[in-house]
Design a protein around this nucleic acid. Sequence first.
DNA 1: CAGTATTTTCAAAAATTATTGAAATTATTG
DNA 2: CAATAATTTCAATAATTTTTGAAAATACTG
Lengths: 166, 166
Amino acid sequence: MNYDETREEFIQVWGSLASSWGVSKTMASIHAYLLSSAEPKTTDDIMSDLQISRGNANMNVRALVDWGLVRKVSIAGERMDHYEADKDVHSFAPKIARERRKRELEPIIEQLKSLRKVEGRTAEAKELKKTLGGIYDFAMLGDQFLRRYIQGEKGWLTRTLSKLLK
Amino acid sequence: MNYDETREEFIQVWGSLASSWGVSKTMASIHAYLLSSAEPKTTDDIMSDLQISRGNANMNVRALVDWGLVRKVSIAGERMDHYEADKDVHSFAPKIARERRKRELEPIIEQLKSLRKVEGRTAEAKELKKTLGGIYDFAMLGDQFLRRYIQGEKGWLTRTLSKLLK
DNA sequence: CAGTATTTTCAAAAATTATTGAAATTATTG
DNA sequence: CAATAATTTCAATAATTTTTGAAAATACTG
């Protein structure tokens, strides 16, 4: 399988998995497109290679920039903005973790913090308290781990997991 | 905040977060409903308390049973099926992890396994190979960790993470 | 500054995903 | 086995999410 075929398939796979990763198909496709590009690309490149509209390309490139997965670079003599993906998984994965933590974990923790204090001396109230408390404690542990990964030094997770699984 | 208020809010929070967790809103609401129920509930209970249709209730309860988060229990003298949630987060979280791993991680790994072998001696082919290889290795590490958690003994993850974060 | 290029916005349309509800199927009871 | 209860299925509908594309805003260039 050659370069172009690999690229195309990578873009298509990354895109088709997008929904289960909680991002739009286009956002994932553009990410894969830039991850597999040797050179920075313009919005026009993205539009024509991925066959999408300008508005769509613009919105999703910006989202990728917001997530920190892609950066704007200037090419001397060119007017259009060029975009380039961070290709080092150990650098971009924590950024994805940061966004997903914020969307998927933080709101649960915030809510459970108060819900687990449910009042009442009935058996059912006590049981609910225990259930919610258990979920809260578990979520907090995951949260601490994620926070450490997100802001930690680059090799930490890999080193830790490797050791752990040896 | 009393038992009923807490329950209602928990159901609503769990449901509203569903989309970012890759499950349908109803599936999450039913899960929260059963997690916060002292007694096993029938499809009719779910329908009337959550205000949803029979088809919807049936489909999503079955999905919860498939995931292993809820089990069918028989109540002596009652004809209708009753459903009860596994309330121990250390028992049900690995089941969620198992399903999400299957949907979100396994397909990427399967594809990257071959894509990372991209042929070509050009600079761009080499760079792509490096990028895809890096993502693959990282995904494999996460996969090993998840597998260990999913089929491991109950306290493993909590113990490990607690030690790690101390 | 005027003219042109580029980027952004956002209402409307399209695509996707979830839900309903009634009919079909399956299970239970006497 | 007939009658009834309970469950499942699935085509139609509704709700949600994504995408388009043209207009508005912004940024350059000479």
